[in-house]
Design a protein around this nucleic acid. Sequence first.
DNA 1: AATGAAGGCAACCGCAGAAGG
DNA 2: GCCTTCTGCGGTTGCCTTCAT
Length: 328
Amino acid sequence: MGRSPCCDESGLKKGPWTPEEDEKLLQYIQKNGHGSWRTLPRLAGLNRCGKSCRLRWTNYLRPDIKRGKFSQEEEQTILHLHSVLGNKWSAIATHLPGRTDNEIKNFWNTHLKKRLIQMGFDPMTHRPRTDFFAALPQLIALAALRDQLGAAAGPAAAAQLMHGPGAGSADVDVAIQAAKLQYLQCLLQSAATTTAAVAGSASDAEAAAALGALCSPQGTNGSAVPVSSSTHDGGGQLLPCTFPEAPASSTEASQGLSSYGGGADVVDMFACHGGSGSLPPLADLSDAANPADRCSATASSSFGGAASSPLPWPEFFPDDDPFITDFL
DNA sequence: AATGAAGGCAACCGCAGAAGG
DNA sequence: GCCTTCTGCGGTTGCCTTCAT
């Protein structure tokens, strides 16, 4: 129990390792093994604490460490394992040969976590966020999409996309407002049934950050917003829908999902979790005992069934609409 | 070209469990 | 059974690099 006293010792060097120190540590361990980390620094002629040596070895010098960017497969594995294990980085690392827990943790904190937040998911529960602040970005995204449609092809064209020939711009506004209201209603209704799931959800500060991202110039042009939504399957169960991925033309879009190589790869990324463009893995404790079954389970049941429309507002966006099918 | 902001990553800190005396 | 030491883990920090203005 208790802290290791080694770090309390004064006079020991801290901070970045020099190539000479690396060489000493490497040579010693290759020759003698690490043995006791506490005594290693003295034996190896290093003015470091054992802890620092161990960290340097496990995170950097170990010969089996894999360097470079995480592959899509590795990202999927991390997402999946994190949904099951939470922040058990060492446990996750055991499933990714050559990757250290520190590396995975950093990758999660700097990439995957942000990505989930931007997509409207709670990074801890891997579920769609249902708090009010989390809903705002989605509403703004919807409005941005409307703006983009209007700017790109004029209100009439936008209306035609949504309602077919003959619809006017006023109809579009009404439809957007109605969609917003309906969506808010869904959120409010679902909140009651999903409170437990989001009890440990990210703070509103994160939601505000996501909101900020969506309100940014990249976000407001509509192309950068990974729109996500939730709706009901009719039985009161929260039904996360698919991600209609906007055309990735902006900086934000290319950064947010760039490592997947574009929208098609986003679909691929989540392919095992319910088909094209579906959600990241859900933290379903009932499935945790059998992680191997999670993909199929979340694909067919946890999302509320595949029979219903994948769209949040089928009455506004017909499934066979070419504009929508392009997104999906 | 200069400067500030943001992102990425290596390393540190402190807690907790395991092991040994 | 208790205490001390060691090791491992997760959270956090701070520096360096890259990007945006």
